[in-house]
Write a protein that binds this DNA or RNA. Structure first.
Lengths: 153, 153
DNA sequence: GGTGAAATCTACCTAGG
DNA sequence: CCTAGGTAGATTTCACC
């Protein structure tokens, strides 16, 4: 699928407001509402737009502690990685996990109601797991930039 | 604002499908559509729901390189942090930035079309900045867990 | 919890390059 | 023939009962 500059501006807008109506999109893009809606539909069908999501305010939900946790597995092997990957899915506090080049480390993004529950996660879940060799956690103090739209230029 | 278990299930659903209609929410929650819509409206007004966003597929947009970059500032001071914070806003590849406890480090989440542009960002933008002392970048290989709903239990 | 007016979406249709 | 703009029926929302 080819994305022209109008598509990119449409995507930029929909990332900021996923509830924008076809009419609103048309005004922003200087198109008719029907054309804007048609473009949006195309982008949904082709999977460029993966889904729509409500973004919540963690503080208002009592999730006052955010952290990034780096986890180092003691032995590198497919079966170890797989068992750890299963663990990730069972822990709702871990909202995202990435593996990186170089080390077979995981980077985890974690939301907890308080420091105690973060420490429980680290000690009773992560360090208690025999596959895990080391963890290093850093608590988020401030988020000067949050979930900006993807760079589409 | 008090959130009862029904609100939490509503939020969980809206994080997965931000376009759920009041009727759909009502079916999930075993409520009437009008009650489900009323709850949602309340959660929007009180800011528990911050906004709605379209989630895009980075690969389909040509953003094949994701990375986390840790940036260490050479001197810790309010004015240095502020100048770096301004830099963050000017770079669309940097979609999120966090400051952590302990060090005055920044963790940056970055999306680039290729390795060359990531390297340009690191060397010509970050390291070229006099405030920056060291950077350490890790390229994302895999994302076994991606943007799961916030833990609302 | 239910109802109805207003707004919105979407499929279909028409016009122009 | 393909792309842009317009129209109508169905659906959804939201203020009110």
């Amino acid at each position: 699928m080819i994305l022209d500059p109008v598509d990119l501006r449409l995507l930029e807008h929909l990332q900021k407001n996923g509830q924008a109506t076809a009419q609103e999109l048309g005004e922003v893009l200087h198109l008719s509402a029907s054309q804007a809606g048609r473009r949006r539909q195309k982008l949904e069908e082709t999977g460029v737009i993966h889904h729509y999501a409500a973004r919540l305010d963690p503080a208002k939900l009592g999730l006052s502690v955010q952290a990034f946790v780096q986890v180092q597995l003691d032995r590198h092997g497919a079966e170890h990685g797989a068992s750890f990957a299963r663990l990730l899915k069972t822990r709702p506090e871990i909202t995202s996990a990435w593996t990186m080049t170089g080390e077979a480390d995981y980077l985890l993004r974690v939301y907890c109601p308080d420091l105690a529950s973060l420490n429980r996660l680290i000690h009773e879940v992560l360090l208690a797991n025999p596959v895990v060799s080391r963890v290093h956690s850093q608590i988020v103090m401030d988020q000067p930039k949050a979930d900006a739209p993807l760079p589409l230029g």
